[in-house]
Design a binder for these strands. Structure first.
Length: 525
RNA sequence: GGGCCUGUAGCUCAGCCAGGUAGAGUAUCGGGCUUUUAACCCGAGGGUCCCGGGUCCGAAUCCCGGCAGGCCCGCCA
């Protein structure tokens, strides 16, 4: 069997795009792919997935020998329909405002919309993804798809009929698929446009109000007109993609199953009204949050790419997104160690298995190249299991974690010197350990005898791990207590668990001063 | 009402989209670490790949039909 590109699903999509374009007879000088960047809420990992995968298809097309471009398109003309959890209440007074007209609640960007887009852009940049940015507002302002909008509005009744046939929705039989921004109250969606004037290319509207998310929002009653060629309003989603595809010559765009109906309608509009064969599509399932200990406890905390990057490398995040496209993915911070180790496994395969490969290995090597955006490193890095780093971080004395962990790694003979790469990994594992592997010391019930034993231990601790270890046994023997039980109590006090690392070395590692403090506190309570 | 996803070891899941010897982590059990019970290291057991048909030399994987759980859309975008 002949392998396409790097052998992954990404290559298969690129291949199918090219084959389809050939059969349509369209020019192949430039194959443009697109991804929409949501601008109305905090970008989820799923938002990054859409963009990262489109970027990968672009790379695959180039790898197959075609020129390609990836456009990341910010939907910043969309109105705010719901204030995301965790954002200030005053945003409620901006409901139905285009997100590009709402002040940035974080005060660092031009608008609410640009703040949200910039969070996604930040994640893309951290992953090394290259893209060409476009803003919806700019596109409307410059009249980028004025011609398409005019064609759509001229045929609005035909389209309304098609929308009913495809989705059962009858709304657009009674109004234009165009939402003017009310020039009086500056909100979108509330004004109903029922008439299109071909001569002046204007839409006549009345700001009546509408139901958004089961809540009726009253309009201001203003009657006005909006010029189609400009940013006085926007096309409804049901037709907007089509206009965008046709004017930007988009050949591929993936979509989530939540907007499947809109895509169907847009395909019809592109094919039948705009005479632009719709782009090749792939439908993907949603990402579902599984949450994770501390993370999910704070309300309204969506799983952002930034959250992932706090614990994992960009490559581990891209692995999550590129591994496969089919099927629902549930994501959790608890999975990150697995993905980190899996990246190392892929690297191992990439650098050791270069010939006589099975399809399986070809795919994995391809996957490794894609998580490096087809620019894999020349040499493998040092592999240390993430779980080991986490464990070392968990027992590391506070404030000196990186130093402690790198010293341990040296002792284990795993590294000679802690370079930048290792230190980075330790920091990620440290974040994970702090948030996910929390040491919770609860009050431990102690008998007077046990208190006495601990007091004696405090006095017998020395900087020699062996001596300290022996001290525990000697004290247990002296008080005629099973060493086992004494150890249990000590673990409980120090780590909140019933078992743990060899205590002598551990006590020395955390520092005698600190060990004594913790033990003294336990006696006092 | 329409569409989609999932079902694999006790548990959590990978493998399925391009068919080729059934995998990992965890739990369990056994062994190791010259006074611990290790969170460490080595090893073992553990499977009707949800059920039933079909295609194929060959099916966890592709097709058809069930069963069970979940998700999305249904006049917001």
């Amino acid at each position: 069997m002949e392998v396409i590109g790097k052998g992954t699903w990404i290559d298969l999509i690129a291949y199918r795009v090219v084959e389809r374009e050939k059969s349509l007879g369209r020019p192949l000088e430039l194959i443009r792919v697109e991804s929409g960047l949501g601008a109305s809420g905090i970008p989820h990992i799923g938002s990054l997935a859409d963009a990262a995968r489109a970027a990968a298809v672009k790379l695959a097309l180039e790898n197959l020998g075609y020129r390609s471009e990836f456009i990341a398109f910010s939907d910043d003309m969309d109105g705010l329909r719901k204030v995301p959890q965790g954002l200030p209440d005053w945003l409620n007074s901006y409901l139905a405002y285009p997100v590009s007209s709402i002040p940035d609640p974080f005060k660092c960007h031009e608008s609410y919309g640009s703040h949200m887009s910039s969070m996604l852009i930040d994640a893309m940049e951290k992953c090394g993804i290259e893209f060409k940015f476009m803003s919806g507002r700019d596109a409307y302002r410059k009249g980028v798809y004025a011609n398409q909008a005019i064609k759509i509005l001229e045929n609005w009744e035909k389209i309304g009929q098609a929308i009913e046939e495809i989705t059962g929705q009858t709304k657009f039989k009674m109004q234009l698929p165009y939402f003017p921004i009310c020039e009086n109250c500056h909100r979108i969606y509330l004004a109903k446009a029922t008439e299109y004037d071909r001569e002046s290319q204007k839409v006549l509207y009345k700001c009546e109000g509408t139901e958004i998310r089961k809540r009726f929002i009253k309009g201001c009653g203003h009657e006005g007109e909006a010029k189609v060629n400009g940013d006085q309003g926007k096309l409804a989603w049901k037709v907007e993609f089509a206009a965008r595809w046709a004017s930007l010559d988009i050949r591929y765009e993936a979509y989530g199953k939540d907007i499947a109906d809109s895509v169907k309608v847009n395909d019809w509009v592109a094919d039948n009204i705009l005479n632009f064969p719709h782009p090749y599509h792939v439908k993907y399932e949603m990402f579902l949050d599984k949450g994770g200990k501390k993370i999910s406890k704070s309300a309204g905390n969506v799983f952002t790419p930034q959250t992932w990057l706090k614990y994992g490398t960009p490559q581990s995040l891209l692995l999550l997104l590129y591994k496969r496209i089919v099927g629902t993915r549930t994501i959790s911070v608890e999975d990150i160690p697995n993905y980190m180790d899996e990246v190392d496994q892929l690297e191992e395969i990439y650098f050791t298995r270069k010939e006589a490969l099975s399809m399986w290995e070809i795919k994995l090597r391809g996957l490794y190249e894609y998580i490096h955006l087809l620019k894999p490193p020349e040499k493998p890095s040092k592999h240390i299991p993430y779980s080991l780093l986490v464990q070392l971080c968990t027992i590391a004395p506070e404030g000196k974690e990186v130093e402690y962990v790198s010293n341990k790694l040296k002792q284990y003979g795993m590294i000679k010197e802690a370079d930048e790469h290792i230190i980075q990994r330790i920091k990620l594992a440290l974040n994970w350990s702090k948030d996910m592997h929390e040491v919770k010391r609860e009050k431990v019930e102690l008998s007077d005898k046990e208190k006495q034993m601990i007091k004696e231990l405090i006095n017998s601790l020395t900087n020699d791990p062996k001596e300290s270890q022996q001290a525990i046994f000697q004290i247990a023997k002296k008080y005629e207590v099973e060493p086992k039980d004494f150890f249990k109590k000590l673990y409980k006090i120090l780590l909140g668990t019933e078992s743990g690392p060899r205590l002598g070395p551990y006590l020395v590692d955390i520092g005698l001063e600190k060990a004594r403090t913790i033990l003294s506190q336990a006696i006092e309570s």
